[in-house]
């Protein structure tokens, strides 16, 4: 069975939602070992961020649901790494 081992997401986050909180919540999801959230742009009401997640078995639906619930907006999945080992 193959699993998602790395995800890079392009996300918009409301400025008043602490991005640290969002990163912590994502890191607590089952199958996630680590999260890196890099703010790439700050606008009037939102900030744009690249979120990189690594783990043994990342559940994309759970990630989507959490982002949705928090009020963030998933703009796209920039990179997805699957399989028995991480390539690249």
């Amino acid at each position: 069975m193959t699993t998602i081992r790395r995800l890079v997401l392009d996300v918009m986050i409301p400025l008043n939602v602490p991005s640290s909180e969002l990163a912590l919540k994502l890191s607590k999801l089952t199958g996630v070992d680590g999260v890196d959230l890099l703010v790439t742009e700050v606008e009037h009401r939102i900030e744009k961020a690249k979120i990189t997640m690594e783990g043994e078995n990342i559940n994309l639906d759970a990630v989507r649901t959490l982002l949705d619930k928090t009020g963030a907006s998933l703009q796209g999945v920039d990179r997805i790494t699957c399989g028995k080992r991480v390539v690249g």
Partner: peptide
């Protein structure tokens, strides 16, 4: 509503709302 416009999404049923 202003945030919905900025995010291009509805915020009903979210922790934010």
């Amino acid at each position: 509503k202003k945030m919905e416009l900025a995010l291009h999404r509805r915020l009903d049923n979210t922790d934010y709302k």
